[in-house]
Computed example of a mutant assay.
Amino acid sequence: MATSRAVSVKDVAGRARVSVGTVSNVLNRPEKVAPATVARVQHAISELGFIRNDAARQLRAGKSRALGLIVLDVRNPFFSSLALGAEDRAREAGYSIILGNSDEKVERESAYLDLFEEQRMAGVLISPFGDVDDRLVRLRERGTPAVLVDRSTASAGFSSVAVDDVAGGVLAGRHLLDTGRRRIAFVGGPIDIRQVHDRLTGLQEAASSVPDAEIEVLLGDSLSIIEGRRLGDELAARPVAQRPDAIFAANDLMAIGVLQALVMLGSIRVPDDIALVGYDDIEFASGAVVPLTSVRQPAGLIGSTAVEILLDEALNDATPGRSVVFQPELVVRASTTA
């Protein structure tokens, strides 16, 4: 039985009546080849169905034309927007983005770092869940730069792009306090996620200047709608006198889960009885059954800026350690103002 064989560069050269070197130039440096010859080679490629072996080319070059991106939760629209911003900027520079979802699990995060190192990525973008400093240092020593996204830090001399989450927590807290709320519940995921920690710190900072303000902290296993719904159910089940009069959720997914729990009960009015603030200002925030007040961060800009810094370090030997911090913005909607 005949065995099918992949079309090779030599096959293309024979069909186009040019040398193998000319085909290579058409594929990699077309500006060095006469337009008529380029057209003839491209016609031969189309006729034969040639597909270049990019993996082999990258292996010979020692580096990929792809950038690895690891996010905490790909289901969160914030990270989807961040990835789109990174992808658009990478494409402009002739690179692609390979996306990995750690799902807030250390072992998955480590597995993606293993994969990206094996695939010789040109660089790595990561929103860390665990302590990855030593691992990223090793990557950098082997020629693969890394930039932290959605995490502001000068740790181990890595560049980072993020929003000031402490300032975001202050914005949310002051807004709730200015509307007369005094018993504020913070609903978040694991406190060892830096973003959760910093947003809570900002809320506590805002409340520290108001003598009768009280902050209660409720932490779930993840930053998900399901966990928000579960914690919201716990609050809604309390006697009226023991409920908070405001809730600040660590992200919009949790806030939407909390909102579902409150409105499904039917006897709790948002914002009359309990005001609610989220974080990220994802697209669903404005379309919730009660439009959600949220702290906005520029997800796409974070992604594109991180790629710019990463490519600068990968291609121009720029010194790592740049820290870009964007300022958050409070977007007020019906969940806090009647």
Rank of each mutant, 00 (worst) to 15 (best):
P128L: 09
E329K: 13
V289I: 15
Y112F: 14
D221L: 14
V324P: 10
L262V: 10
S224R: 09
I191R: 15
G130C: 10
A16S: 13
A156C: 07
S155Q: 13
A83T: 11
V263G: 06
L253D: 08
P298N: 14
V170L: 09
A338Y: 00
R91Y: 08
L310M: 11
E329P: 05
A34Q: 15
S96F: 08
P298M: 12
P239Y: 11
D11F: 03
V290P: 01
L310V: 08
K32H: 13
A156L: 03
P77A: 03
R75W: 00
S209A: 14
A250T: 01
G278Y: 06
L148A: 07
D272S: 10
D198H: 08
F79N: 05
V38S: 11
P244Y: 03
A83Q: 03
T293V: 10
A299W: 04
A44T: 09
L67T: 02
T144D: 04
H175S: 02
Q260G: 09
L67F: 05
V18K: 08
T153W: 01
G232R: 06
R65F: 02
T153A: 15
L231P: 02
D73T: 00
S209M: 08
T201H: 11
S24T: 14
T144V: 15
S208W: 03
S8G: 06
P328S: 13
T305K: 10
D192S: 14
E329W: 02
G143E: 11
G157R: 08
R60S: 13
S323E: 15
R151Y: 12
Q195P: 00
Q119A: 12
E92W: 00
L48D: 02
Q260M: 09
M121C: 08
F116W: 05
R296G: 07
A34G: 12
G169S: 09
I126W: 03
N316G: 14
V325Y: 12
R142T: 07
L115K: 08
Y112A: 05
L59R: 00
F129E: 09
I126S: 03
G278Q: 02
R108I: 02
R15Q: 12
E104V: 03
D164F: 06
A93Y: 01
D73G: 12
L171G: 03
G123T: 05
A39P: 09
R29K: 14
E107F: 01
E47S: 13
S294W: 05
A162V: 00
L259Q: 07
G228K: 07
I126D: 02
E31F: 01
P328R: 11
A122C: 09
G220H: 05
D133C: 13
G68L: 00
A261R: 02
V295F: 07
S8M: 07
P320T: 10
G173F: 01
G189F: 02
I225W: 06
L69G: 02
T337R: 15
